[in-house]
Design a protein around this nucleic acid. Sequence first.
DNA 1: AACACGGGGTG
DNA 2: CACCCAGTGTT
Length: 361
Amino acid sequence: MFNFSKKLIDWYLQNKRELPWRKTQDPYRIWLSEIILQQTRVEQGMPYYFKFVEAYPDIKALANAPEDDVLKLWQGLGYYSRARNLHATAKKVAFDFNSEFPNTYAEIKKLKGIGDYTASAIASICFDEAEAVVDGNVYRVLSRVFGIDTPIDSTPGKKEFKALAQQLIDPKDPATFNQAVMEFGATQCKPKNPYCLHCPFQQDCAAYASGKINELPVKQGKTKVRDRYFNYLIVLGPSGETILSQRDKKGIWRGLFEFPLLETEKPLKESRFRESLKNLKLPGVSSAVLVDDLDVESLVALTPEAIIHKLSHQKLHVHFWLLKIKDVSGLQTSSFEVFETYAVPRVIDRFMEDFDYKRYL
DNA sequence: AACACGGGGTG
DNA sequence: CACCCAGTGTT
């Protein structure tokens, strides 16, 4: 058997990118970077890493921030439970552990938002613990080089790849080994058009030998996408007041803010919109208020064509409506200026970029 | 074991 | 359009 670890680390030392979190072993910064990079490309996550380090230089600063501020800084990055768990774990470490980040794989993995991958990354990079990381890159590299076609999203597959990585890891330098596999997968052994022609493993690679580079890794999962129809109602009072709500319970965008939402099973014809509003409840000061009870001045369709917003497993058809009313008494309103300081879904943020409520006053 | 959870890049 | 990205938590 060829020396996988040595070849890999040699390649890494020659080809690695300079990344901001590669200059430190500070657990706070490594942890922060790893959470940001979950299911997120380096280029997409980088600006957020800089924003967070600047706003919250240490874990105490993060722990003492209001959750809404953390969400606002996370806005646009997606998978918002990462931000909520990040904040919860910062409080845990700051207040329960006296700001001392746990220093073993087992203890790190107990923290919210940290699974096998992230615990391994932090333990190896910060504390030199020989725990192998297995992320999408590792699956791809190992499945190809060793010709493994066990589905990576199956339980046996996860066990098999973790065991193999654990067997391959260099116990003398686990941090470099782990980062090397991932870097190799990200920039050399890419999903499409990998650079096989000048690959250090060309002579060793099972998939290259059998012409199965494009068949590996094997994934069985099939994510089905469902259609949803969102109608956002921008209620506008005489002085520029509007109504907001914060998403809670389960589902997408938990914790983010939005306008009152009417969701329907099927696309809603514009001609039928007014009557379908009858049962929509708006947050009132004492109790909920029905749209039907308001003194409506006008109703404007702001988006004749639905805005299509795609998530990994949902396709949203989004319309925005403007409902001008003459009297906001009894309603819970806030200003658009305040709204700007809250975290909102990307689709709303994008809409607000070229929507000026003052035009409608 | 299967599914939910965002948003953006790539071919 | 399908697939993927320095995955985790819930059911």
